[in-house]
């Protein structure tokens, strides 16, 4: 059946915006804050790092705390395996007071592809511990169902490699994930243009998570707004129901002449 709900539901929380923002790679905190505001997002990811005595101004907590409608979703980046990810999640929850966690384990620092096995183990443990778990995963329909089975609130398959701007190179697999999923499917990573976000939403994604494409745009604040519009457009198009492509092929010799 067509998705009729208008708000995004994640583990009992409702969001009007279907755009989730990453807060990395911005030139400065002020631009980041303005981009968040322009995007209308209600959920942003943050990362855990060592406190830097020489640059206490790096601290994101204070500016983010001022954004009243925005919930935090700590990620587990930097974790090399499920054990480290679980601990990072606990630290993140301690620090943010937020039940959301983006499980993200990418042991290879070059291509940053997620480790499916460690991600599964961490997600399972964290879901059992009461976290609202959103794992960042390869676009793998089997893994997605296994993560649903262990209680994840959503799955976040990659559209392309992190920061690559490769777009929706995994579209076929994401389509398969959406087809059989009972939980929201959120494209995370790889998007470059708002039109790609729109396409992901048209395919039936529940939301998209964008970071680099906004942070690295010439004008991040304007791009944040453009992504919000792309997501809205794609979602509205999905609700409206796309006209299918025509596939009426004409056979050279009749196939149904045997019918009485």
């Amino acid at each position: 059946m067509k998705d009729e709900q208008t708000s995004l539901k994640l583990g009992g929380h409702e969001f009007k915006s279907r755009l989730i923002l990453g807060t990395g790679k911005f030139s400065d905190i002020e631009t980041m804050v303005r981009a968040i505001e322009a995007s209308g997002t209600e959920l942003v990811t943050v990362a855990l790092r060592r406190f830097n005595r020489d640059k206490p101004s790096d601290d994101l907590c204070a500016p983010l705390a001022k954004l009243k409608n925005v919930k935090l979703m700590p990620n587990t980046s930097g974790a090399m395996n499920s054990k480290e990810a679980v601990r990072a999640a606990q630290l993140g929850r301690e620090l943010s007071g937020s039940p959301f966690v983006k499980v993200e384990i990418h042991p290879n620092p070059h291509h940053l592809m997620p480790d499916a096995i460690e991600t599964y183990l961490a997600a399972k443990e964290l879901a059992a511990d009461g976290f609202i778990v959103l794992p960042y995963i390869p676009a793998d329909p089997v893994l997605a169902k296994k993560l649903e089975d262990v209680g994840c609130a959503a799955v976040m398959p990659l559209g392309a490699a992190i920061g690559s701007g490769g777009g929706l190179s995994t579209a076929d697999m994401i389509q398969l994930i959406i087809r059989d999923s009972n939980i929201p499917v959120i494209v995370d990573a790889g998007l470059r243009a708002p039109s790609e976000a729109a396409r992901a939403m048209e395919m039936g994604c529940a939301a998209v998570l964008v970071n680099s494409a906004i942070a690295a745009a010439k004008n991040p604040v304007a791009m944040a707004r453009a992504f919000a519009l792309g997501v809205e457009t794609g979602y509205a198009a999905r609700q409206a129901g796309l006209m299918p492509k025509s596939a009426v092929a004409v056979a050279t010799s009749p196939l149904t002449s045997f019918l009485k």
Partner: peptide, 10 residues
């Protein structure tokens, strides 16, 4: 001792 805080991340 590890002292940790939030920074920007995707």
């Amino acid at each position: 001792v590890e002292v940790l805080t939030f920074v920007g991340g995707g």
